[in-house]
Design a protein around this nucleic acid. Structure first.
Lengths: 228, 228, 228, 228
DNA sequence: CATGAATGAGCATTCATTCAT
DNA sequence: TATGAATGAATGCTCATTCAT
């Protein structure tokens, strides 16, 4: 109605206050998400406890409910954020290379780096024994819970990384860089390899620094193995 | 003490009784371990409940404490059994092949099969985020908790599979089947790859049947990549 | 104070503003009460939630505290409204009849109808196991909690219906329609009867439709039983 | 097998110990039930709290779970016990009288006395707004939850008291003691009346001692009203 | 050898309420 | 006037563990 008027000081104050509050809110939200990731890493998905998350950030358990509807929603938000950033990272890496072998190498390095840099997130995204409840949202559809079993299997096809990986393999096979083979199966084999390295590095079975040394031998063996 | 005396009849009876009781004791112990494994298969390590184990064998929860110090100790025994059987499986596989590439192939297949056939066990052995508490025993020492971080890193050197893997690689490099490289790093790369495939197959990200199809492409790519 | 001074324009403005604000205040207060009644109807007194009342009217929970001291005070206001409307209903019914038996019949029917039409309200007014906290206000005094036990007993004497009931009985006894007896005890007997029917109808023990069929047998038996 | 042997001292001790323990167990069970009834009276069905019951008897909340499966089972047990004793009381009263009017009077007095003597129990049995979950057991059948809505309505037909009441009315009508009328409707009217008196006496609206005085006027009015 | 009784700690969640703004 | 942020208390329930027997 009267929006064209120059804002009074009160209005400006109000706006600033609102902004500040929103800033704080976003901040705390992120703080919670971070703490949730840590909690998750420390105790595993099944023993994940809202109350411990609260304690970690120094707020009362109730407060978390002001930012997330419930425990599940909190985990869900974490993983959704994670996939967004993951997809972007992978895409950038692939786009930065030209021929198929270079793309594979870039993709592999980016994938492993992402995992090593975001342990709790990676765990939540790819190392959950029971990701079922995440599926509907991840698939970006309103899939009814009934369909979940069916939906779980093809999930990986949706992950951007998977599509880029298959594309790179197809290109390499077509231009003769790689020997023939089913690109989807090969893609899964490569995925398994890099995922395995990250998994070990995030477990007490292999020290993360050591994992760094394994990256090159692993990738060069794989790409060499693909060649004609 | 008085051990040099000739045993009286009472002493012999006592001994026999002791033996019989020990037999029974061992028996129940194994029964518990078996039940624990099942429970564990059914509900996963995080939702593993002592009470349900007790119910499964028809004893009271308290009884379990007569055989194991606590829940953790029970899980520990389970995992130790697992490693024994795992080591045997791997050793048999390697011994069944002669040249290095065949040994690697056999080892890889056996490893993956073991994982796919014993999901919860594999999870407990290799996919626990917090295996710390397993370390001291696995390392066969009384390492105090303080040393744990140091202890975690070299764990994999103790695993029999790892040693066999390195040996096979060394042999292959020496006889010219494989191109040169650090056998330990290569071993870890191979380990990561097969572990990754099993991990995915045990997660909702990849269907176990699909994983079966990936085995061959994965192994052939790897072994091919090792060749000169 | 300074009330005798002639009002300045500013004072008048202030007064008008005050009035307007008070109008708004009364309005919102009533809105809250209405919403409380609905909430209360929907979920019953025990599961009555301030937060849901707030949501219903589109205000924050905090706002309600500007109009009522707390949850209890809000419920109290609700029940006070209920008694006002109840008293009016009963009075109208009695006034619509002339002789004592007809008045009793009318009163009984009106009472039962009120109950069947306002289940949660009736429950709050007459079926609360712990109405203690309502007493002081209902009795129109500032009776301290200590006096509550003493106050509870004579409450029913204050309820308008009770007075009208006693009056009708007295009239009937005096004019020979009814046989002799203590009108107060008889009034309580009649009250008990109609209250009992409503209570059953509001419980799962008797279907409300069935209760309708019981009204006539009940009232005719009672009035017949009062006759000489 | 060898049960015919005279019991050793150990066996006797064991048996005695068992018995004592069972005695204690029964005792505590009853203590819990009693406390539950009180809790229930004090805070109503919806605000009934297991933890408060525990506190009342001086045991930890967990302990209650050793005696009852959960909150619902506890309430259920209470009410089942109550119905058993109630049915017996009513039956005895009716059997102690011969002609129809005397039976009605006896039944009414017994009913009211039961209520006045077992406030929490009566409340739980007959004053619950939400007895739905009690229905299947009360109806003594395996009625599936789906049938509950249908089952709720005819519940009162199963209550022994109701059957005896109807029988007495039928007898009185047949032998000319009472004027004609639908015995079922009349039974419900009588039920409503006595239930109403008890309800008021158990509420703060009427003092229990006062209720005692109302019993006679109420019953005589009702029975008088039934006569020809 | 085995158990029944009991408990304390922990969990997710909801709610009435307070306080600073 | 109204609100958003935050909390403490409470709830039903499960579990690992202890202790006396």
């Amino acid at each position: 109605m009267m929006d064209s008027k120059p804002p009074t000081q009160a209005a400006r104050t109000r706006a600033a206050s609102l902004e500040r509050r929103e800033g704080r809110k976003r901040e705390l939200r992120e703080q919670i998400l971070r703490a949730a990731g840590e909690e998750f890493t420390a105790h595993g998905p099944e023993n994940f406890s809202l109350r411990r998350v609260a304690e970690r950030i120094g707020y009362s358990p109730t407060t978390i409910y002001l930012y997330f509807q419930n425990k599940e929603a909190l985990l869900l938000s974490t993983v959704e954020d994670g996939f967004r950033s993951f997809d972007q990272t992978i895409e950038d890496a692939v786009n930065g290379a030209s021929d198929a072998p270079a793309q594979l190498e870039a993709l592999g390095r980016a994938y492993i780096a992402f995992g090593l840099e975001n342990p709790p997130l990676y765990r939540l995204m790819f190392m959950q024994p029971n990701t079922d409840y995440l599926m509907p949202r991840l698939l970006g559809s309103g899939t009814a819970p009934a369909d979940l079993e069916a939906a779980a299997q093809p999930l990986h096809h949706r992950v951007v990384a998977q599509e880029l990986l298959v594309a790179a393999l197809q290109k390499g096979i077509k231009d003769g860089s790689f020997r023939k083979g089913d690109p989807v199966l090969l893609a899964d084999a490569l995925w398994a390899s890099v995922h395995g390295l990250v998994s070990l590095a995030l477990s007490p079975l292999m020290a993360p620094q050591h994992a760094e040394n394994v990256v090159s031998p692993l990738l060069s063996t794989l790409i060499n193995g693909l060649k004609a």
